[in-house]
Design a protein around this nucleic acid. Structure first.
Lengths: 217, 217, 217, 217
DNA sequence: AATGAATGAGCATTCATTCAT
DNA sequence: GATGAATGAATGCTCATTCAT
């Protein structure tokens, strides 16, 4: 990615970006604990004390990475969605934007999905916030779709939450699958999930739901 | 928690189980790197050299944990499913067994889902094997369901794979959600996912699929 | 070497010999510090506590090895020499016996020559005693030779000591050389040294000595 | 001993020398395995991480010590010898330089003679190279002496090798003797060996050799 | 006569972090 | 704005040694 030429005397903002790029890459590939400040500094083409001067500590550096990557992901999804459009269209656009961004920033995605969630509260909370934002957006879309469809049956609040979670979870899982499986495009992945999800939602909204068999009988 | 009374002089098998229990708990909560052999030994009520004597190294210990937990999970799902039953019933039973097991063994689930996948090939491969087994089971169920429904449309091979992945991914994500959200039962979670998934699958199998809008128009 | 069949219940003396054999081999090949009691016990086909029961500690075990091997070496040399024979003949026989024994017991020789001398007083003293015995024997032989030769010049006490040391040192060094160089027999080695040494001694005894050049001029 | 004042903030080269001095001393006195990095760092007046930062590992540190001491020894011998001088003079000067250097750097000599040879290939090879260099120099000198003496008898190739080995071995052994025996000067030691060796060589070169008695008869 | 079970103490190595310049 | 020099505190791992049986 475009940088880290060892030139001296850059303005702070540029240096800081180089460091965070290096950090995201290192954290994403090695994991939080296994990534060493030495490696990050080296990759950024900078001495270790400078990293500390600008970013204070490994923990803060990691938090900054999470925040930056989370922000970028949410922004990418937002940019892909047209606010006034019909709900299904919004979901479709959002999914595409999501999968595309994850595919283009695998290390960033790894930081969010694999690393941040596995290293205790300070970090998990950060990523949970982003996730909540997306889940709530999806929840809103499901509601909107229900209203648009003028559906008769009502979906319980919690059930909608569960559905949104399932959808987001499926998306996250597929993002990893797409990143690791060569030859699968973001659009394909989005289509698969959209088919899987939307049809199900439609059914639900029309009251056709799968009945659990009478208990063990 | 079941065990690790500091009593001395136990037979090897018992001690070994205590150690693995402690290890799963520690790895699940702290992560592979952050978990220290000291802490594991302490939690097991044993001195560190004994852990090494029986389990050789941190890496082997972690691998042993993954294998044990993966085996237990697969066994739980298998035990919950009745082989001859209709596909939807099998899926439902399997999901319930899965969510129940994950809820009852949160640390084990964390080891598999959060830790093993983020610490390099030796471990990721181990858990990938288990996942592949489950995905292939789900893939088979989708196919069986299609045949049972005598459906006319055919689902492309890769699409089925994608669907199975999406379903398993959604399940994994929901398992985490269920473990972290108080008051949600495994049965509820399973029902949510089943509704979400099965209806969608039915639609797909009947050729009703969501059409992506004509490109950007 | 003849042993360590894992059979149970041997008389103490036999077990002890097996242990010492294993210890000599391990110490000789690995060195004192790098040899582990585990390996020694394993090689002897015995459990570790038994080694401690019979030989008390690593230090004592090592000392015992040194003593046994030193004793064996001295005995071998003694057995090769005929007390009444002329001095040169005695020296020749002694050298041959020495090189032969060192070649036949390379681990024992390594213990004495390489290991015992490099691990502090308790052990170095032990081997120094043996060395002193041999040096004094050689010193005596040189004196006897002088008397036999009815030589006119007198050799200073200290000079004889130095010569004996040099001879023994050369022998020790050649023993290592012989053990590590394939195709060199003990007899050959002995002949080389004998030629080197005896002629020189003869010269010295006859007063023909090498004169250091006038100081730097 | 010369240095290691605990002053802070020295240039790297200086610190590195202090560390190597401490390492040579510690390795020489305790042996490779028994020497602890803690002790070395302490003796150098430095924290352990700094030792690792500059010298990478115990193994590399030891190797560096061997190389430095071997180089110093060879250099000392070279510096003591006058290339054009007669062979006996060269041998005499070389021996004096050798004994003097060994006496002045007992720990360095111990590292080379006692430790490096007893701790496996990586190290033994290093010192073997130096030894080979010296042996080959001595071999050359013996040949030169034979030519100078215009001697009639020919010395077999292998015999010369054996003689050189014996001479070097004797020297090594005497160096240890000199270092451990108080009151013996390097010059004295050199004279003893020179007398022992040169006269013998002269005899050999003139075809006067010691005849092994007819086999056991 | 012999061993399975267990540990205290130490060791090489690494890392996040800080001064002094 | 930037760095070479330096360290306290862990961490994984091993080993000589001892009980209880």
């Amino acid at each position: 990615m475009g940088g880290a030429v060892k030139g001296k005397r850059m303005p702070r903002a540029v240096r800081e970006r180089q460091m965070m790029d290096a950090a995201v890459q290192t954290f994403g590939q090695r994991g939080y604990r296994a990534a060493s400040m030495d490696e990050i500094a080296g990759l950024a083409g900078v001495s270790k004390p400078l990293v500390y001067l600008y970013l204070n500590s490994k923990e803060e550096l990691f938090t900054a990475c999470i925040r930056r990557e989370a922000g970028a992901l949410v922004a990418a999804v937002r940019a892909g969605v047209e606010p006034g459009a019909p709900a299904d269209r919004q979901l479709w656009d959002g999914l595409r934007a999501f999968f595309t961004h994850a595919a283009e920033h695998p290390d960033g995605w790894a930081v969010l999905h694999n690393q941040a969630r596995t290293h205790g509260e300070p970090f998990a909370a950060e990523v949970a916030r982003m996730r909540a934002e997306i889940v709530s957006f999806v929840t809103y879309l499901i509601g909107a779709a229900a209203r648009e469809a003028d559906c008769d049956s009502e979906l319980a609040e919690r059930e909608v939450g569960g559905l949104a979670h399932a959808l987001v979870g499926a998306a996250e899982s597929l993002a990893g699958w797409g990143n690791e499986t060569p030859g699968v495009t973001a659009k394909e992945t989005a289509a698969t999930l959209m088919n899987f999800a939307w049809a199900g939602l439609e059914n639900l909204m029309n009251g056709r739901r799968w009945a659990p068999p009478s208990p063990r009988g």
